[in-house]
Design a binder for these strands. Structure first.
Lengths: 374, 374
DNA sequence: CTGTTAGCGCCTTCAC
DNA sequence: GTGAAGGCGCTAACAG
């Protein structure tokens, strides 16, 4: 089906020298010394030839190249990393790989990283700050050239750890850090602005008793979304506020939030909430499912809005109104910031880059009454 | 919030020696030579002390340990990897990180790997065989100790590439390979058996015109599910068969499958299909969404069954009947097989391990008429 | 118990 | 243009 020899022959020998003959890979791995012996030159010469660097006669170069390809030479990146003090690898830390928000970030980072010839270490933390620190340190032990941390629980404290901000040996870029005020490179989503948009939409639709279903351990991100909710209601002269906090942001926790939510609403308003603004889509989708199980219909009885813009949000019933974050792009941009920093050999002198991206409000039926739209 | 110094003090110095004083990490990274100089011993002695190996007086050992901790020593895993010919890292190849099926596999692998002190390289292929080969070779260049490949498009051909099956320098474990008959270590799901269960359920519910919505590039996996579908219908004396193939397995492709499906059904049966068995949950959820857009109700007009057991499948409307694969466990088991192989220094002599896991049929409302269950 | 010597595979001065 | 020597940080073999 796939002709590997052919595949190989088309690539530059140095970047991915594939063996002409299968079976060659079985031998102990060949080094530049082996090539040198076969070519009758010294290994530094082979090294230069393979990297296309230095003045070398075309004749010896092509001879070396063809031998390299013949015996299936493949540069040892570990050895190169040791001498170069640069591994061409970066580490990515996420809290939960299974969460669609994070998996899109991983996808973006992976693409950018691979596209630039780097390799990617992946580690997860399950939102445990100590585990996060442990993973970051393990990456440093691996001598990665840079680190990206999504949903950091530690955030600004890295600056303290490393004493004076960015002056650490390996640059760090944060994505949607849960921690406050990081003097570090970062890519964030405009959570406050986005949440204001959602709230404005809900008010415009005529909802007044708007509850917030938040994330107890959501740190800065949750705080921003909640603040937008609260300020919007205050500006509109609406009170009291009803907020519930979920300890995790899974579908099941969304379902489980229905009862406390309805109970609290009954206490405060003696009625159902008009609408619920959820910390994220998983909670929102779970909530809708739970409401349906209680024979409450969305949006007629209770409207629901989410946050994130998961693909599946468009395909549930009713389709979910949500603030779509450019998750893939956030990963991509974070990786590009890091790779840029790495080009500058002296990344420690760079001022912190702070990039804030805007999402897009996707209005769907879960918040729109008297409409057949989707 | 988090006291790093404290966190560190509790760990063994060798595994994660954190600095007592912040700011120490700013210095050029310290090596065992620095410690040796401070302690007035030779570096090999430091090396031995740190690894708790060899006979060393308790006095010098503890002196070395405390100096190491004091100056924030951290072993350089690149250097260690070079001399040990073993990096304590493994590579994981997936086709699409964003796909929930793969992200759960990643999660399982990552957990097992980290739990055993290994690091994880991640690469994706977008289902391109050449890209898959490229990623695998880049991992070999990184000198990973082993490789796990999910949904391989190449599969058995690795054996050919490496001439005689398992006798390659780095062991490979396949998860749900799309390619046929691999003489390689593998973890698979019993797709044929699982699909038989789904089909038996559909027949039992009285459906007769059962279509299959497949994955054109699903290889072995798709073939097995489709074969189960076809054989079940044949055994039941049902024909003709209606199968549609989607080029990708996304929600949108599920939506887009509605029209060709209904057209074909009209041609073959002059009626709607009774039920549609889908290659996976994403296609199924998209299909349901698309049917709803045409004012067709599930399961009354058309029943729909999926495959994978995504969490969200339980929370859409109607809840989706699906064959739940133990995705996380598949990743976990694959990693454990690999790690076991790695303990045996001579993994080349091991016979291929082939593990087949069984899923669980989750019957929900999308295939059950005249019922209020879910 | 500890120091000396050597080398993993590669790159980078320098000479020639 | 090319070879010789040295070292990245670590572990391994052998002395003592």
């Amino acid at each position: 089906m796939v002709n590997f020899a052919h595949t190989f022959a088309q690539k530059k020998a140095i970047s991915a020298p594939l063996p002409r003959h299968k079976a060659i890979l079985n031998r102990k791995r060949v080094s530049i010394k082996d090539i040198a012996a076969l070519a009758g030159v010294s290994h530094p010469t082979v090294s230069r030839a393979l990297r296309g660097e230095g003045r070398i006669s075309d004749e010896t170069r092509s001879r070396i190249m063809s031998i390299a390809q013949e015996i299936g030479y493949m540069p040892n990146l570990v050895a190169r990393g040791l001498v170069m003090q640069r591994t061409n690898s970066i580490g990515l830390v996420v809290t939960n790989i299974g969460d669609p928000f994070h998996s899109e970030i991983i996808r973006g980072v992976e693409f950018a990283v691979r596209d630039n010839g780097y390799s990617l270490f992946l580690g997860s933390t399950t939102a445990d700050p100590e585990q996060e620190v442990r993973v970051v340190h393990s990456f440093r032990g691996r001598s990665v050239d840079g680190i990206i941390i999504a949903s950091s629980e530690v955030g600004a404290q890295y600056a303290e750890m490393f004493d004076d901000g960015l002056h650490m040996d390996v640059p760090i870029v944060l994505i949607s850090s849960h921690a406050e005020g990081s003097p570090l490179h970062s890519v964030t989503h405009d959570d406050y602005g986005g949440a204001r948009q959602v709230m404005a939409h809900l008010l415009e639709q005529g909802y007044r008793r708007i509850a917030y279903l938040g994330h107890r351990f959501g740190g800065r991100v949750n705080a921003e979304r909640r603040r937008a909710w609260q300020e919007t209601l205050q500006s509109a002269g609406l009170a009291p506020f009803l907020a519930i906090n979920s300890t995790e942001t899974t579908l099941d926790h969304g379902v489980a939030s229905v009862n406390p939510l309805l109970r609290r609403a009954d206490e405060q308003w003696g009625a159902l909430p008009d609408a619920v603004f959820c910390y994220n889509d998983l909670l929102a989708i779970g909530l809708i499912s739970g409401l349906r199980a209680q024979n409450l219909s969305v949006p007629e009885d209770v409207a629901v809005a989410g946050f994130d813009g998961l693909d599946v949000a468009a395909h549930i019933e009713p389709p979910l109104t949500t603030m779509s974050q450019p998750r893939y792009e956030m990963g991509l941009r974070a990786a590009n910031i890091l790779l840029d920093l790495l080009k500058n050999h002296d990344h420690t002198s760079q001022p912190p880059q702070e990039l804030s991206l805007r999402g897009e409000l996707l209005v769907r039926r879960s918040t729109v009454r008297n409409s057949s739209g989707g």
